[in-house]
């Protein structure tokens, strides 16, 4: 058994739509990754703890509610506090370009994927970043 890329996909906050995140999950599975899904309405604390227990390489955060600036910086802070900032953090959802820019430059997010992103790009990005092309 070779090393597999493990991804934790989560939906923090009160947002109730998981269609998009499940499509991404399927694409990542098709690409041979182990995808763990959190379910809806996770608190930051819950999902950081889960990411640590599952020892994932990638944390994928999906937010459609508009609360990304309130939630994501706190998540990456928690990851750092608990010594898990080596996890690659990607975010998806509807976010104004300025917010996306700030998340990447100031809040420890590695990459933001906007609506309409081709799932192949996400797969390619993860492969590139985890050195598992």
């Amino acid at each position: 058994m070779e090393k597999k890329i493990r991804v934790f996909l989560c939906k923090p906050g009160l947002d109730g739509h998981d269609r998009g995140v499940l499509i991404v999950g399927q694409a990542l599975r098709e690409a041979g990754m182990e995808v763990i899904y959190s379910g809806l309405k996770q608190t930051n604390d819950m999902l950081v703890e889960a990411a640590i227990q599952e020892d994932v390489d990638v944390l994928g955060i999906s937010i459609l509610s508009g609360a990304h600036m309130a939630l994501i910086p706190r998540i990456t802070e928690l990851l750092t506090e608990r010594g898990a900032d080596d996890i690659l953090v990607i975010a998806g959802g509807v976010m104004p370009p300025d917010d996306a820019e700030a998340l990447v430059s100031q809040h420890g997010v590695d990459r933001v994927f906007g609506p309409g992103t081709n799932t192949r790009d996400i797969v390619a990005y993860i492969h590139e970043k985890t050195g598992n092309a």
Partner: peptide, 9 residues
């Protein structure tokens, strides 16, 4: 594919 979707959580 060798992948898996783990949804028990």
């Amino acid at each position: 594919t060798g992948g898996a979707l783990l949804g028990d959580r």
